[in-house]
Computed example of a mutant assay.
Amino acid sequence: MKLASLNSENRDGALIVVSRDLSRAVSAADVAPTLQWAVEHWQSVQPRLQELSDALNAGDVPGSFAFDQTQVASPLPRAFQWLDGSAYLSHVELVRKARGAQMPESFLQEPLMYQGSSDYFTGPRDPVIVASEDWGVDLEAEVAIITDDVPMLCTPEQAKQHIKLVMLVNDTSLRHIIPAELNKGFGFLNGKGVTAFSPVAVTPDELEAHWDGAKVDLALSVHVNDELLGAPLAGVDNYFDFSRLIAHATQTRTLTAGTIIGSGTVSNHDRSRGFCCLSEKRALEVVNTGKASTPFFKFGDRVRVEMFDAAGRSIFGAIDQQVQAFKH
């Protein structure tokens, strides 16, 4: 089942069900007004949404319409909680190596995670608005999940049943702002720009054999200005799958339905797979040559993030954004 939030006057959008091939959609208003409402009432609404999805895929739903990825918000246009992890330590290790720092052994035992801004997310085709190119504008292509209500001290095995939806992320990072913020010892704030999610969120069963219950094993494709930046495998070199990330987040608290958890930048030790962020490519250049030659984004640059099934079909639709200057 694939779900999306059509842009509307409601800040949380209007829930629609999308066909498997992303060609058609139908309103889910009679079942659930918004995705947030659906996740909060998942046990009762999921069967009805599934029936609607099955009928749509069979071509038997009155009122269906052509699905337009430019007309949707992020699946959750805003969320009560957005937690971003760092499950791919090959990314952490390389970036730290480029600045002459070792990765602490503790990073292998417990995931890094921060709580990001979630009062609004941009749509998957909305521009990335920044005030200055000097901020070091970068992308971070990730996989994310949406949970239902999760109890405190949830075990990794228990956590799997709380993963209701999967989607993709472009988490904008402002690399020249981040170091000074981190040096304060209080975490990210201004160093993280707008966050966008894929046009649709999918139930794990849509991923079929490529979902093991806690992670997806497919390549995450990233293009910058129509050139392939990389297609690392999301199921490889994943030190902390989503069950581990949920367990970590619930050590001292519960999670409310609609909580989004990101994997962090997808990255492989096999650098021939390319990269899901510019900073990782720059870090490898520093390690190999002593100097980074790849620039961060300039105004007018575009980024596209997408994931395809074994037959080459887009699963989540595409995050496709242009970097634009903020205007007063």
Rank of each mutant, 00 (worst) to 15 (best):
2 K>G: 05
9 E>H: 12
11 R>C: 02
17 V>M: 05
22 L>N: 13
25 A>S: 10
30 D>I: 09
31 V>S: 04
31 V>F: 05
33 P>C: 12
34 T>S: 12
36 Q>W: 07
40 E>N: 10
41 H>G: 08
46 Q>S: 14
46 Q>G: 01
49 L>E: 06
55 A>H: 06
59 G>M: 04
62 P>G: 12
64 S>T: 09
65 F>R: 03
67 F>A: 03
68 D>V: 10
68 D>K: 13
71 Q>N: 12
72 V>G: 02
72 V>N: 02
97 K>N: 14
98 A>S: 15
98 A>M: 07
101 A>P: 00
102 Q>Y: 10
103 M>W: 07
112 L>T: 12
113 M>P: 02
116 G>S: 15
117 S>N: 11
120 Y>V: 12
123 G>M: 11
124 P>M: 08
126 D>N: 10
134 D>T: 09
140 E>I: 04
141 A>K: 03
147 T>C: 07
150 V>P: 04
155 T>P: 07
155 T>Q: 04
165 L>V: 01
166 V>R: 01
169 V>H: 06
170 N>F: 06
173 S>M: 05
176 H>K: 13
178 I>E: 02
179 P>G: 02
183 N>F: 09
190 N>G: 15
193 G>E: 06
194 V>G: 07
197 F>E: 06
201 A>Q: 08
206 E>Q: 13
210 H>P: 00
211 W>Y: 11
229 L>M: 13
232 P>E: 06
248 H>A: 15
250 T>F: 00
251 Q>E: 09
253 R>Q: 15
256 T>N: 10
262 G>I: 08
264 G>A: 03
266 V>E: 06
275 F>A: 01
276 C>I: 08
278 L>M: 01
284 L>M: 14
296 F>K: 02
299 F>G: 06
306 E>Q: 15
307 M>N: 03
309 D>G: 00
311 A>V: 00
313 R>S: 12
